[in-house]
Amino acid sequence: MSWTLFLLLVKASGLTVAISAIAIVIGLTLGMVVSAGMLSPNLLLSMPSRVFVSFFRGVPLLVQLLLIYNLLPLLGLNVPSVVAAVAGLSLCTAAYQAENLRGGFLSVPRGVVEAADMAGFRPFQLFWRIRVPIAFKLTLPALVSEAIMILKSSSLVSVVGVVELTRMAQDLASSTYKPLDLYAAAGGLYLAINWLMAGLGRLLERRLRWGRA
């Protein structure tokens, strides 16, 4: 396979990484809020959160992407397809991360929360400064594996016309008649990116040891 073809794939994987990274960050942040919502005693918060999670975990991502892509113009939002792609990925991963984080939030010791309460923390300060870091650390392995999952699932956004790594490989395969070379290269690139992600996850895990050996 020629060097130019490979560079085209590398460039497309840049888009894959960018889309996924944004979706992972938005998904985690939204997931935290939704997860807290699910655990709220207030039905007005817990009901919508639970509906959100069951919808985005129950409907295939491919269908979600097509839905969002076709729904946005109806709402008067004429956004580029890459935005629809990021939105779809973010919402989907948020649902999974919310479910992952739920166990973490439930495991935050009550006394640690009471100590913050005594120190005068307001609810949102208590949430972001105490509950979130502890729940995040407790569920880190599951969060990282969901991040890797969504990166791989980003190959689906080609259906709304975003030319990311998989779509680029497809296009080049059909124009060069060398499908095997191109898909092998694309697979190698996905693998490399995921190694990098897993490494970042381990680095994070080490940083979050909080003094434990």
Binding site: V112, E114, A116, I130, L208, W210
Partner: peptide, 13 residues
């Protein structure tokens, strides 16, 4: 009011 607990309840992070 300041409170000190039996199990310390320090913030582990």
């Amino acid at each position: 009011i300041g409170m000190v607990f039996q199990h310390f309840n320090l913030w582990p992070h």
